[in-house]
Design a binder for these strands. Structure first.
Length: 474
RNA sequence: CGAGGAGUAGCGCAGUUUGGUAGCGCGCUUGGUUCGGGACCAAGAGGUCGUGGGUUCAAAUCCCGUCUCCUCGACCA
């Protein structure tokens, strides 16, 4: 394509954010649509991000003493109905297998929308004594929820996630574990995804079907809307009683365990795209970027250029940096645009001029700044990657904080969320008021704010029992 | 599930009003010249027009059915 014919490949991020998102995930080859409604194919460039998310989280879980396991995808329909709230919440969106082996099944099987039931069933068999507790297992798997409207990574019929499930002797322990895992997630978002989140408990209306309490973390997307990036749930004895998770306690009496669960999904990929992306496309956090550095040779057929880029690549790789050397026949300008759209944190340009001067041109994706480094200065590149990650977090955090506003009235709340803000507001605690806010402002309660106190309910004006963050959400 | 939009080459589209046997751009292949912000020349390959039926001498085009995808709303990691 000639310079003067250059057409913008992706929609304008400011005026058409949803289209920008769809364009970016497709054009950068993170994902493609599957042939079945609502399904997605996670392509290598996208799956690499997931693999980095997985390995980093998996390491953290294991450090906390969680073991990995795998439970079957098919769950007897009757399991789902054992916990009243649970079935009510999930029944509308499960896919059901009615036929197999050429015959109708006696009992339909649901494709797991989440695994509390089947894991509860198995834990019921495995837990006998207080000595078996805590029992903490996690699985990496796919789940299926037949959603009405879908969008790659953010909401798909089938998605990948991890779901951790634990049983404890006491409610205090289980609840503490629920909060501990929430903190683990938030730390992961900060240090690995460079993404700030608000964390806190969810309202009854927003909690997980069957839980006593649900905690969530909410990330602010580029347009100021909220995305639930992960949840942890304290189940009390609800599932333990439904599935007979009982043990003989320290005093010799038979008692039910207390369970909790937690999960994050491939939605995190959508979250980081919509948090960090800009008009040129993706801006990937270095810790999860498939490539942290792309090397673009200039005049690569000239004597010594490709050789020099290979030497540089090996030096960077030796320091543990993930490197792509783009020695394709495309022009340098084409490569610059391509890799910027794909969000590679650092680009290094290396041509005859640099080689002669013993330098290399290093370009940051997040700020688009360029600087000359000594050729082969691996430590400086390493340090730059660290800096980029920190700066991405700081910018996102400053942005989120600048977009938290307070409201005393429904009108103010509406104006706040329409302006792309998280709105802090008081709440009397009545479901009717929460419903009214949603109807009036198309905004939902995201999490409780434990750090501030608003005096009156934003809806009815009575004394506030709680302070909440409201936002429009994906 | 309600309201819109769209299915024609790998991608993006034109052609449908007024039926006449399929075209453009990008990409792809081969060769050559290029290379510091989407290079250029030349020669090529690639489509039973989503699908089933109907009308007609003749259907991408007209009629009926059907499937799928996208966007926006009510539900959700």
């Amino acid at each position: 394509m000639a310079k003067n014919e250059f057409v913008k490949e992706i929609a304008d991020i400011e005026t058409d954010f949803p289209q920008w998102y769809t364009d970016v995930v497709l054009k950068t080859k993170l994902v493609d649509y599957g042939p079945v409604k609502g399904t997605m194919v996670i392509r290598p460039y996208g799956y690499a991000i997931w693999e980095h998310i997985q390995s980093e989280l998996d390491r953290r879980f294991k450090q906390m003493g969680v073991e990995n396991a795998y439970f079957p995808m098919l769950i007897p329909m009757s399991f789902l109905t054992k916990e009243a709230e649970h079935v009510e919440g999930f029944a509308p969106e499960v896919a059901v297998v009615t036929h197999a082996g050429g015959a109708k099944l006696e009992e339909p099987l649901v494709v797991r929308p989440t695994s509390e039931t089947i894991i509860g069933h198995m834990f019921g068999k495995w837990v006998e004594s207080w000595r078996d507790l805590p029992l903490r297992q996690n699985q990496w798997c796919n789940v299926m929820r037949w959603e009405k409207t879908t969008r790659p990574f953010l909401r798909t019929s089938e998605f990948l996630w991890q779901e951790g499930h634990s049983v404890y002797e006491t409610g205090e322990e289980a609840e503490a574990a629920t909060l501990q895992m929430l903190a683990c997630y938030a730390d992961f978002c900060k240090n690995v995804l460079c993404m700030p989140v608000l964390t806190g408990r969810k309202t009854e209306k927003e909690k997980f079907a069957g839980a006593v309490a649900t905690y969530g973390m909410e990330a602010m997307m580029h347009d100021g809307k909220s995305l639930q990036a992960g949840t942890t749930h304290y189940m009390g004895q609800n599932f333990a009683k439904a599935f007979g998770v009982q043990f003989t306690g320290r005093e010799g009496t038979l008692q039910y365990g207390y369970t909790m669960s937690y999960g994050v999904s491939t939605r995190l990929i959508g979250a980081l795209i919509m948090t960090h992306g800009d008009a040129r496309g993706l801006v990937l956090p270095p810790p999860v970027a498939p490539f942290e550095v792309v090397i673009v040779p200039i005049a690569q057929k000239k004597e010594g250029v490709l050789e020099a880029t290979h030497v540089l690549k090996e030096a960077l790789e030796k320091a543990g940096i993930r490197v792509k050397l783009d020695d394709s026949d495309n022009s340098p300008g084409w490569k610059f645009n391509e890799w910027e759209m794909k969000g590679v944190p650092v680009r290094i340009e290396l041509g005859p001029r640099d080689i002669e001067a013993g330098k290399m041109l290093v370009c940051r994706r997040d700020t688009l700044e360029k600087a000359e480094y000594a050729l082969g200065d691996v430590e400086a590149v390493s340090a730059l990657l660290e800096t980029i990650g920190r700066d991405m977090y700081s910018r996102a955090k400053a942005r989120m904080e600048s977009r938290i506003v307070e409201a005393d009235t429904l009108e103010a709340l509406l104006a706040g969320v329409e302006g792309g803000n998280f709105v802090r507001a008081g709440w009397c605690g009545e479901r009717a008021c929460e419903d009214k806010v949603k109807e009036f402002a198309q905004a939902t309660a995201r999490v409780f704010d434990e750090t501030h106190t608003m005096g009156t309910c934003v809806c009815c004006g009575k004394k506030a029992a709680h302070t909440l963050f409201f936002a429009r959400a994906y």
